[in-house]
Amino acid sequence: MTYSIEPLSRSNAHRWEDFNRRCGEGSPFHSLKWKDLLEDVLGLQLRYHLIFENQKVVGICPFVKRSIKVFRGLDGTPRSECDNIILDSSFNTNHFNEILDLFSENYSFLIFSTYDSTLSDRIDYINVSHEDANSIILDLNQNPPEAIWADILSKDERYKVSRFEKGGFTVQEIESGGDLDKFYQYYRENMIHINGYILPFAFFQGLLDSFSPDEVRIAIVTNNGVFAGGNLAILDPVRKIAYFQYLALNRDLPNKYSPSYYLSWEGINWAWNNGYERISFGRERADNPRARNKAKFGAELVPIHSRTVLLSKTVSLLYQLKQTFSERQQAHAPSTGRVS
């Protein structure tokens, strides 16, 4: 079999989009609209590649340019829930090293993510496993809202949800204007609170300008002008999955209110009523408290496998020397144990 890679260009952009649409692992975060948003608003230096088997597209790889000293490499696209390499179901993972060989002609290292654990097991190059994250996925076919309410949520969690309805709060969908300003204000405050990365306002405005109304939903919860919270979901109606991406929370509400619970519950019901089968609550480490809170709605953790592949002999040698030096340091370190 003959494999080749091509940088994304105007002449092959339609083939990228076609593959993303028909592939089961495709996503809005692999679309060229998302690429344009990352480049135009965040100024990222993206390097997208298509993988060919003879003349057939069998994979797409969204990357960002990354350099360490004089060594050039590629990394997964930041600020994207899905940045994984996508391969056609017909691709033989035993040939993955042939793809890596092609990247080694121009790059010294490659950092990638995949849901397929067998892919990383096939790598012949020296590679380093990252601390794996997880996608938190709720399967609504297995856990519809009625079952979540009756069998999964605790009495205390059901109270946190119903407290908003009894308190006179209502849900409103927004598109732009002053309501978007308010959403962004509390999104920013929430990110400051959790020490997260704050996207600029232009990112959200660009998202609404680039994506159609059936691809983005912003729901806010208010009561007589009091903003309680908001949730921005990126929608994939073809694959019937909703990505709950950005949360805006008013943390000055009385302690009896937990807007994140109500927003999750409202979003679950909206997705169910509109024919969606899965909800993604984002990427988290298993030990993160936010992951445990999202699991309370019946979501499960789907492992993401990440690797740094050392493609050049020089980088591999430097890494091996560093590992050897570190092991020798540990072997000769004085004991800190106490003999009693």
Rank of each mutant, 00 (worst) to 15 (best):
E131L: 15
T77I: 14
D18S: 13
I85F: 13
L119D: 01
S113M: 05
D139C: 06
S80K: 01
E17P: 04
N134C: 15
I86A: 06
R47S: 13
D88A: 05
D40V: 15
Y107L: 00
N106F: 13
L46I: 05
Q55I: 13
C82S: 11
N92H: 15
V70K: 15
D132H: 14
E105P: 06
R72D: 07
N106R: 12
F112N: 04
T114G: 03
F63M: 08
E131R: 15
R47E: 08
N127D: 03
H130I: 11
L37P: 05
D83C: 14
F112Y: 10
N84D: 12
S135L: 04
V128K: 04
L37E: 00
L138F: 10
V70D: 11
E105H: 12
Q55P: 11
T118M: 00
E81I: 14
E17R: 04
T114F: 01
N94D: 13
G59F: 10
D36R: 14
H49C: 03
S67L: 12
E81T: 15
P28S: 07
D18M: 11
N106C: 12
F71N: 02
I51P: 00
F71H: 13
S113F: 08
N94S: 15
C61K: 03
N20G: 10
Q142R: 08
S104G: 06
Q142K: 07
G43R: 02
S89E: 09
T118V: 06
D124K: 14
L50F: 04
N84Y: 01
F103I: 06
I85L: 15
W16D: 01
I68Q: 11
I51M: 09
L102I: 02
V57E: 06
V57A: 11
C61A: 15
S120L: 15
I123P: 05
P78K: 06
F112P: 03
E131Y: 13
Y125P: 03
V70C: 14
Q55H: 15
R79T: 13
L138R: 03
F29W: 03
I111L: 00
L74R: 04
Y115K: 04
V128S: 00
D116A: 09
S129T: 09
L50H: 04
